[in-house]
Nucleic acid binder design. Sequence first.
DNA 1: GCCGTTTTCGGCCCGACTGTTTTCAGTCG
Length: 615
Amino acid sequence: MINNAAISRVLRQIAYLIELEESHDNDTNKNKSNAVFKIRAYRRTADVIENLSSNVEEIYNKWKLKGLTEIPSIGKAIASKMEEYITTGKIEYFEELKKRTSINVDEFYHLEGIGIGPRTVKTLHERLGIKDLSELEKAAKEGKIHILPGFSYKKEESILRKIQSFKKGRGRYLLGDIYPIVKQIEVRLSNLRGVKKAIAVGSFRRMKETVGDIDYLVSSDTPEIVMDYFASMPEVDEVIGKGPSKTFVKLNNGMDADLLVVPKESFGSALQYFTGNKEHGVALRKIAISRGLRLNEWGLYDSNTDGIVAGSKEEEVYDILGLEWIPPEMRENNGEIKLAKKERTNESNNLKLPDLINYNDLKGDLQVHSNDTDGMISIRDIALAAKEKFGLEYIAITDHTKNLALTHGLDEAGLLNQANKISELNDEIKNHSKNSNNKSDSGSGSSNDRFRILSGAEVNILKDGSLDISNNILDKLDVVGAAIHSNFTQPVEVQTDRLIKASKNPSVDIIFHPTGRIINKREGYPVKIEKLFSVAQDTNTILEVNAHYNRLDLKDEYIRMAIQNDVKLAINSDAHHYVHFAFLIFGIGQARRGWAKRSDILNTLSVDKMLNSLK
DNA sequence: GCCGTTTTCGGCCCGACTGTTTTCAGTCG
């Protein structure tokens, strides 16, 4: 399967090569400007494909060219080049472009995005004959670049630094890995003198599973104080740029961080400007133009009078553009703008934005591990923390079962023992909370009274789709999750059949981490996901949104598809220690990115209702 | 090359920062 990144890379290189050629000849202005837009079109398509959650080859296999051209920004010309790439592994046009230059595009196009673009490379090629990265580095080290017109010592040094930085590698960070430090800096910025508001925007605010760099937006009338602080934070390795309203730094974890400071009159428009993905932003600015307005980070302006129409509040910006406020997690230009339109037409009559699940809507967690197997703490400790530190009303202990030997998985007797132990603990906790409630005389019955530990298991789906624990034992447990932990490299049909057989098993309530992916590390095993959705719907099998930030499985696009297929979901932490309950926000964020409502998520229900709605 | 509530031609989102450009090009998000 060709991944989107590969196709995106080819398109980006095509754009790069056209741009290199473009500055060669002395075309008329007309042709030049056409080339500019052609380059832009290839880049835009590369962006779109890179951010697409569906695989383009799958789209092509299913709907051929028509499927490709239905993706926004992709027309006939680029679609047929993509088709050529998918079916033959090559694009003739791309090969010709490569033949016409000796510059190593495959190396140089990486430097785009870190300040060395095609025009600079072209000049260096013409003046010094530089063809690849090692020649560029050599020339910079030998001081051959700064003597060229239009260059300087500073530029030469900057080229060297950027090559070093590129060699170190630049990837996307897992949201959960950077979340604590991003929030910490956000709090410190908020507490600075003169700061009214400080917030991390961009893909972080959209709760995207991976984040490339981090953007802070601050409202203050004294920007210099904020920017001086930002540039001198202990985490800052290097200040890359600093102007009157923006500062760019590199943090010591390798991540780029940008800061924008605006007056409070512009905070809402800046929030809007820097939160949505690029396409969402472009779409909004086009709507502005169509209404005789102009939108930028400083405000929404009347094009004729230049007077400001909105800016301090994000809601106002959306409102004046005729849109409902769109939750950040949805701002990906995936159809949310159409749903947000206030003006109802025949076509959009019954379309509106979904009322997304909120970050405090989960009442329980249906995948929790204890030190009976590979968890780190006891059932009692993790349960008490779930109740007292995280305000949950129930958790299900779903330890691994016997076939997963490396976790010391439980056998039938072990599961029944554990279920008995849980029953005793429930009695104890009940008494404990009664006593503490009496002491504090807290009046009306709090959620404490209702806390409950559920017995359960995470059983293994074996190679043939059967389970490693018999049904008569599983039926004695409150919640049964099933998951694939072995034989990852089966053909798609086999893998899908395993999951379907498990879903059809009357003892299985939930399929845990249904695709088995580990973000940035492991692709999930191949699954015909629509088939699984259809069986899950038929059999009332819950699919999990695993909230651990390295899984987030199901992913956002699949969540959206599952909901469209009336499949119920559960958001679970997969906690092996009570600190892991903090991961639930990532699962909720992912569910919101998949447009999930509260009613789509099983564990927003109270424990009895939740148990009643299982098979 | 893409696209359509000025629909098959003629436009195409917008501003900040850097460098050496004293009026702008290159690059980024």
